[in-house]
Design a protein around this nucleic acid. Structure first.
Length: 661
DNA sequence: GATTAGGTTTGG
């Protein structure tokens, strides 16, 4: 529980009242932090030793900036090993050699410049220099070293203490590092590689294959294209793991990285689709033995761990991963590559779709199940329909439907002009479309709930643990949070589903930043229940999930416990909807395009969940970056001089709902 | 219960 409340605290201090509430909870003796003593009121005050004051044979606690590190690798003994060199304001360096049999217990360092807090490091003298080494109970926290970034620890243990004062320590180290250290790493994108270099690559794993006993192949991609021809490592087809369709689509974008020796074991264990940082990859120009064969670039991760050579697994919420995901779904190339600037060949080429004739109009629908995002990479997809020749609109109009065409036309106009109006909610059961409720409507429903007092008898049941408090402002609101447990234990916040009673819109959004799922509920006599279905039944990340009022038959909230009992609850919105008896509504783009090519005018209706703009419709209302992308796409498609009226008023940016909360 | 590695690249 303590951990949860700290997390709430990290989540930008949910509210002052919750902040004040924190010490009260900490005094409950049953909740004992592993690293602390019996209660937070007498929490141990950890003392941190500056790096210039270390003495041989002592065990100390340290703070430092990562100057160098080797991501955890399999040692020749029984453990994983990670070597980390720290520096602090004293400008003294300390190299620590850390061992643990459990990968997760080593610091989660992703780049130089990260800030770490080590507890219980043993100091020894080695070769005339101080050296740090793991001692019993070693624990670490790692923080992003970027000035101004949220101070959110990546912990190596489930329970830890982190007090307000320490946030300041982290911020001070960040500021000191910013002006005193240059930690620019050798990062590069595939689009920037040169024939002879060592660099760190942040990428996604698309395929992998055994090559021989001492080497292993990773097929990776980082959303950009290497400007040189790259080598393809020959492997037996049966050894290649990964989605065949995806591997084929991305065949000109993925690069083959051959990893050797000590890296093979880790490489084998990597999951397809995971995000990686491969440290100190070596690019090598293949010697052109035969002049007929143009030389290509090879990517090697040599054996050994010099210069931090190795492979790190990045979590989905890593900022560089977030960036990678965004870059990878840039839509523009789909429209520009083949027939820029205003040709719509991408329009038809991008999807295999049914074209139905209705009153001289064509419905362009995309009702396939959503594909993995990386599968939507645009540039390669266009090649798939090159066997189809273009058809004039006159011919399309005169022919019977349904038929598939590839057309080349200008976009004369489109509706709606206010792009945010193109986002609707669709029920696939009753096939109705409805407007996305705005945030105010949700707020009104939440305010309506304030009158319903939380029922004390519904607190802390077998499958959830509850905390309740009263706000300190004049409203004296009662807020209750029910944390759903997993095997009678609380999970990490990022995996936790919680239910909230009495929170405001703002408080709920803040919780969604830190916790996996938030379900607004209210107390009934003998059970908690969902709010009116005009409100979202679930919030996850930036997305509000709504249910169809007509097709849903809400079931008891207790059914959530069946999902919590799964080995690893995934908390998929569709599963949650199912157990709660909700028919989920899907976000969809609905637009009308009028296309002309000199032989006729054709209305084409777009009905698309995410493929056309390569943007999920569910994310567009809360992500200003994606909104800009969508606008750029429409600007590309729409002829110059006929753009969307006055930009700031008409554009989708005017409909930012909660991205800044 | 000790050991692992102890920063500094390039081969396949």
């Amino acid at each position: 529980m303590l951990q949860y409340l700290y997390c709430l605290h990290f989540c930008n201090r949910l509210s002052l009242c919750l902040f004040f509430f924190l010490p009260q909870i900490c005094t409950q003796p049953s909740i004992t932090p592993f690293s602390g003593t019996t209660s937070a009121s007498v929490a141990p005050k950890y003392v941190y030793t500056p790096l210039n004051c270390l003495k041989d044979g002592t065990v100390v606690n340290l703070y430092g900036i990562v100057k160098f590190f080797k991501p955890p690798y399999v040692s020749k003994g029984t453990d994983y090993c990670s070597v980390v060199t720290l520096v602090d304001q004293s400008n003294v360096k300390l190299t620590c050699t850390l061992f643990n049999g459990n990968l997760d217990s080593l610091p989660k360092i992703y780049k130089n410049g990260d800030i770490v807090r080590f507890h219980r490091v043993k100091i020894r003298e080695y070769n005339g220099q101080m050296q740090g080494i793991t001692s019993a109970g070693f624990a670490s926290l790692t923080f992003d070293g970027t000035v101004g970034a949220p101070v959110v620890p990546r912990a190596s243990s489930k329970v830890y203490t982190f007090i307000d004062e320490e946030q300041k320590t982290v911020e001070e180290l960040r500021i000191w590092a910013a002006s005193n250290l240059s930690v620019s790493g050798p990062e590069a994108k595939l689009s920037d590689v040169k024939p002879m270099m060592f660099f760190d690559l942040t990428c996604q794993l698309v395929g992998k294959a055994k090559v021989d006993g001492s080497s292993f192949l990773l097929k990776v991609w980082d959303g950009t294209k290497c400007p040189y021809p790259t080598w393809k490592v020959p492997v037996e087809a049966k050894e290649l793991e990964g989605d065949r369709v995806l591997l084929h689509h991305l065949r000109n974008l993925t690069v083959d990285v051959l990893v050797y020796d000590n890296h093979v074991q880790l490489a084998k264990s990597l999951k397809i689709g995971s995000f990686l940082r491969i440290y100190s990859i070596h690019t090598k120009q293949a010697s052109a033995k035969n002049e007929d064969i143009s030389s290509h670039i090879e990517f090697h991760l040599h054996g050994g761990t010099c210069y931090g050579r190795g492979i790190g697994i990045l979590p989905e919420n890593n900022p560089d991963v977030e960036e990678l995901k965004t870059i990878s779904i840039l839509p523009c190339s789909a429209f520009c590559v083949v027939c820029a600037p205003v040709c719509l060949s991408g329009f038809v080429c991008l999807h295999d779709k049914d074209v139905k004739k209705e009153n001289n109009s064509f419905l362009i629908s995309d009702l396939e199940s959503p594909l993995q995002r990386c599968q939507q990479l645009s540039a390669t997809v266009l090649t798939d329909h090159q066997d189809m020749s273009n058809t004039m609109l006159k011919t399309v109009l005169n022919n019977r439907a349904p038929q598939q065409y590839r057309i080349r036309a200008k976009l004369r106009s489109f509706k709606p002009q206010k792009l945010y109006q193109s986002v609707k909610l669709h029920c696939s059961k009753c096939n109705t479309l409805q407007e996305v409720p705005n945030g105010d409507a949700f707020d009104v429903i939440l305010q309506g709930c304030e009158a319903t007092a939380p029922n004390p008898e519904l607190q802390s049941m077998s499958w959830y643990e509850s905390v309740m408090w009263t706000t300190q402002d004049e409203n004296r609101r009662k807020i209750t949070i029910h944390f759903v447990k997993h095997y009678e234990m609380l999970q990490r916040p990022e995996n936790t589903l919680l239910m909230i009673e009495g929170g405001t819109l703002k408080e709920i959004w803040k919780l969604t930043r830190r916790f996996k799922c938030v379900i607004p509920v209210k107390s009934k006599e003998d059970d908690l229940e969902l709010l009116d279905l005009s409100a979202p039944f679930l919030l996850q990340g930036n997305i509000k999930y709504y249910g169809c009022k007509k097709c849903s038959t809400p079931k008891s909230i207790k059914n959530l416990s069946s999902l919590a009992e799964k080995r690893e609850p995934s908390w998929e919105p569709t599963e949650i909807a199912q157990v709660l008896g909700i028919e989920p509504l899907q976000y969809v783009f609905v637009m009308k395009f009028t296309l002309v090519d000199g032989t006729g005018a054709l209305n084409a209706y777009l009905f698309d969940y995410e493929k056309f703009f390569q943007i999920p419709a569910s994310e567009i209302l809360t992500n200003s970056f994606l909104q800009q992308k969508m606008e750029m796409t429409m600007n590309t498609l729409s002829p110059p001089g006929r753009k969307l009226g006055k930009k700031s008023n008409d554009s989708i940016n005017s409909h930012v709902e909660c991205s800044d909360v």
